[in-house]
Design a protein around this nucleic acid. Structure first.
Length: 462
RNA sequence: UCCCCGAUAGCUCAGUAGGUAGAGCAGGUGGCUGUUAACCACCGAGUCGCAGGUUCGAGUCCUGCUCGGGGAGCCA
């Protein structure tokens, strides 16, 4: 092929290749033919926009007859600047070659499809405008996250995907096994875990946090960014069974300091999107959620709201709202409560800190009052909880006591206690749901549409 | 797991009071002096999600199931 010689559509439409002869490799998006002139719009994934190929006269290109939306092509032609048209540059074709014909039953058409239909053809939906934009945006935002932390001296840690910790405090786990389940079921024999691959129960990770904590006590500042697995049967527009989470962990950092970092980080992701992903943000603003860009811009320019759980409960009580679920100190905040705070009361992202210890995880640092812990959630309009984190309990005795109270096996988690025994330090960390951040930035309302190949209960196709 | 809503051509949908299905797009054929989701004409295309039931007759009414969507819980 001409892989190294070809020119990307992106370079052509930006005018970098004016008056030059180029080779384009891509897929036809639409064809318009008349007697004296014909047009094909070609897309190669480098941009939302297509390059227009001009065939004059079409009779010189017999292959045109066999080209429909979806056909892959190799085209040689000259880039020409044009005036008074939708596109500033187009390509006057000299050679046209069909690389792969496209069957007539190609499901993607030159019109809008519903997201529900596209989810059923997740192998083809990357070729649509919307998913092209989302997938490029996803890549850019991943890069942005790495760049942000690398520039600040954080180290990227690969935490294990397979774990034997079954009570990290975050939901149900997928079990990993090589035992011949069918055979064992037929024989109705007891499971002998010693015969399993790891000689004990193993699971897919629900968080890299515990290992992240270990690493931060050696490297100072670390972050993880990888897949996370939850086996809850959640049928909602903001849950997946497999999703990507970004988790930094900082030694010698308390909750208030971490909150400064979180705000700066989230604002950086927004600014980066606005400044470095113009094409994507313009698309979202026009087709997905009109006014999204304006909202994001205002977020960058203002401070996030910051309240304690106790203050949140007061606000909810004073709101005189008729909530479906009760509001009261000690009760968990429900979706409707979180939405009220971020969408109606503050109308912007809100930090909620210092939750009752009884409704939070065992590893969170207990406050002086002995009733609350140094936890923080970030609630954003439309998406809900986008960040959850805490200052960790660095005091050996406190942590051990918590673990005992929760009925945890101390011996099994001695390694987690050990870092509190050998030169313990205050440390803090949080988790950012990557897909939820993508939803927030794009305005997409279903998490299954910001994940290339989403997994959820009863669905792991493609 | 619970509560709502939905399922009609490849796609998006319409279908009136139960009376045996229709439009746009896509595809095919032809036309058109640069088109922009091009346009014009013609053509083919459906076990109305599945299984029962009510009825002389069911896309339309009833029951169950399957799948999809929205919300709740769980959380990121």
């Amino acid at each position: 092929m001409d892989y190294f010689r070809r020119t990307r559509v992106k370079e052509i439409i930006s005018g970098q290749k004016a008056d030059q002869k180029v080779i384009i490799l891509g897929w036809a998006r639409t064809k318009r033919l008349s007697k004296n002139v014909g047009f094909i719009e070609i897309n190669d994934g480098s941009s939302l926009h297509n390059a227009q190929l001009v065939f004059s006269p079409p009779g010189d290109f017999p292959e045109l007859e066999r080209i429909i939306t979806g056909t892959s092509l190799r085209v040689v032609g000259k880039v020409v600047k044009v005036e008074g048209r939708e596109q500033a540059y187009e390509v006057h074709a000299e050679e046209l070659e069909i690389v792969g014909e496209c069957s007539q039953d190609y499901p993607l058409q030159k019109k809008r499809h519903t997201f529900e239909f596209l989810r059923e053809i997740a192998h083809l939906r990357p070729r649509t405008n919307t998913f092209g934009v989302i997938n490029r945006f996803r890549s850019k935002l991943s890069h942005c996250i790495h760049e942000y932390y690398q520039q600040r001296g954080f180290y990227y840690i690969h935490t294990p995907i397979i774990t034997t910790s079954d009570c990290e405090g975050a939901g149900d786990l997928f079990q990993v096994t090589t035992l011949p389940l069918k055979e064992l079921a037929e024989k109705k024999t007891e499971l002998d875990m010693d015969k399993d691959f790891f000689a004990e129960k193993a699971y897919l990770t629900v968080s890299g946090q515990l290992e992240g904590e270990l690493m931060c006590t050696a490297l100072g500042d670390i972050y993880t960014f990888g897949p996370t697995f939850r086996a809850e049967k959640s049928y909602t527009s903001r849950h997946l069974s497999e999703f990507w989470m970004m988790e930094p962990e900082m030694a010698f950092c308390d909750l208030d300091e971490m909150i400064i970092l979180i705000e700066d980080f989230l604002k950086h992701l927004i600014s980066y999107s606005i400044e470095q992903c113009e094409e994507e943000m313009a698309f979202f603003n026009q087709w997905i959620d009109k006014g999204r860009q304006k909202v994001l811009q205002s977020i960058v320019e203002s401070d996030f709201a910051k309240i304690t759980y106790t203050e949140a409960v007061d606000i909810l009580k004073k709101s005189k709202r008729n909530f479906e679920f009760p509001v009261g100190w000690g009760l968990d905040l429900q979706s409707e409560h979180e939405r009220f705070l971020s969408e109606e009361y503050f109308k912007k992202p809100v930090f909620v800190t210092d939750y009752p210890r009884d409704i939070k995880a065992f590893y969170m640092r207990v406050n002086e009052d002995e009733k609350t812990v140094r936890a923080v959630d970030v609630l954003v309009p439309l998406v809900g909880e986008i960040v959850g984190g805490s200052q960790r309990e660095e005091r050996y005795d406190y942590l051990r006591k918590n673990m005992v109270q929760q009925g945890m096996d101390i011996e099994e988690y001695q390694w987690f206690l050990d870092i509190r025994k050998y030169g313990t330090v205050p440390h803090s960390g949080f988790g950012l749901g990557f897909e939820r951040m993508l939803m927030y930035l794009s305005g997409m309302t279903n998490i299954r549409d910001v994940m290339p190949f989403p997994r959820f209960p009863r669905s792991a196709k493609f």
